[in-house]
Amino acid sequence: MQNSHSGVNQLGGVFVNGRPLPDSTRQKIVELAHSGARPCDISRILQVSNGCVSKILGRYYETGSIRPRAIGGSKPRVATPEVVSKIAQYKRECPSIFAWEIRDRLLSEGVCTNDNIPSVSSINRVLRNLASEKQQMGADGMYDKLRMLNGQTGSWGTRPGWYPGTSVPGQPTQDGCQQQEGGGENTNSISSNGEDSDEAQMRLQLKRKLQRNRTSFTQEQIEALEKEFERTHYPDVFARERLAAKIDLPEARIQVWFSNRRAKWRREEKLRNQRRQASNTPSHIPISSSFSTSVYQPIPQPTTPVSSFTSGSMLGRTDTALTNTYSALPPMPSFTMANNLPMQPPVPSQTSSYSCMLPTSPSVNGRSYDTYTPPHMQTHMNSQPMGTSGTTSTGLISPGVSVPVQVPGSEPDMSQYWPRLQ
């Protein structure tokens, strides 16, 4: 039975679970980093996980050691009161100082060594604690504590007292930064006198190289990059290397530039699409467009005044059976039934097929058609009795279509119309 579990990581490298990497692998990681390889490249070359490479390099940059820390136990506290007071002093002298600059000053002034120097995250935590204590304490208590930490007896009751030896409130920041720059020169002199001055200088240079600022491109470089971006948004590694040799930039910087440029292009394309949609959409909808001609068919113009009344309900007709019959029939052209047409008796099958359309009241044959006459024609229609054979009435077949029909004066039988409509 094995005491430890061995495995293979996602890159194909072998590791022992819970145990640190061998010293030979750690040394190779540092050597590759000094030669300029990126952590992701080191991870692929040595088949070590990216997190492990970053952790080893980060500890090497901070402490200069590649040895693993002790497994188990607690780390001794490195942010001692003396170190905290120095950090507060540096922050007062130059409020814009960075944590890694404070760390360098602690090393250069001999406050800490490589073994007990606090990390950048520890210094940031100390600065946050100082800021929170400043908010919790009152103004007087804060000034007393700062005077105690600074070891001075001057008056701290006013704002300019934060910067000793100065009279203009805006000047101390520059003086403090100048003092810090002077301390940086002392850093070089002190570290050069040490035993491991060369190694420390190499480590600091490598650290500065990794902690780079934003790349500033010249106009020629920007023009070359934009020209390549117009050709393709995704250049391959050969195109990037050719462009890197042409404009004297690292291939990694060119790759990052193209990634950022593609993101910018997507944002601009989104804005262009929004403007295009806004320009195509009308600002207001016309009133006429809300009524579609496919839904509402136009009603033909009436030929006679009587045809303006298109349904039985508008003429005072309360018989719903006839109203439904007229509205359900398709529109037909106007025609006239003459008196000489043969009077065919209704076929029983045809009569039964339209039995649902006729009223059940037996008085329908005896009703006159003056009910369908509009009010303004009552006088004219009353002067001509319906009993004469020459009287013409208008029957409504569908809305908007008038059918003048000659009705025999002897017997106005409704059943004569249905064979004609089939």
Rank of each mutant, 00 (worst) to 15 (best):
C94N: 07
Q47E: 04
N116S: 13
A79L: 07
Q136G: 14
S132I: 11
T113E: 09
R19W: 04
R26V: 01
S65W: 01
Q27H: 15
M142N: 09
I71C: 05
G110M: 12
V8E: 05
E133N: 13
T113S: 12
I123S: 01
I42R: 02
P39Y: 15
M137P: 13
S35R: 13
F15D: 02
E101P: 02
L11N: 06
L11V: 05
Q27C: 07
I66C: 09
G138S: 10
D144Q: 11
Q89H: 13
V30F: 04
I102E: 01
G7K: 05
S108M: 12
N114Q: 13
A70Y: 08
I42A: 02
G72T: 00
Q10T: 09
R59A: 04
D144A: 11
R59T: 06
I45L: 13
N9H: 01
K28D: 07
K55H: 13
V14F: 10
Q135N: 10
T63N: 08
Y90S: 13
R147I: 09
L32W: 11
S54M: 04
I45T: 11
L11S: 03
Y60P: 01
G7F: 10
G36Y: 04
Q10P: 02
R125V: 03
E109Y: 13
I123N: 02
E133C: 14
D115V: 10
A70L: 13
L130P: 15
G13A: 02
Q27F: 09
N114C: 14
T63D: 15
V78E: 01
G72N: 00
R59W: 04
N124H: 03
P39V: 05
G7Q: 05
L32A: 08
Q136V: 13
R38V: 03
V53M: 02
M137G: 12
H5V: 12
N116R: 04
S4E: 11
A131C: 09
R103P: 03
R19G: 01
S85T: 12
R77A: 02
P39M: 15
L106H: 00
V84R: 15
I117Y: 10
R92K: 09
Y90M: 14
G36P: 01
G12V: 03
Y90F: 08
N116V: 13
F98Q: 04
V8F: 11
V16L: 09
N9T: 02
L106E: 02
S43N: 03
V83Q: 01
F98G: 03
P22A: 06
P81Y: 15
C52T: 09
P118S: 05
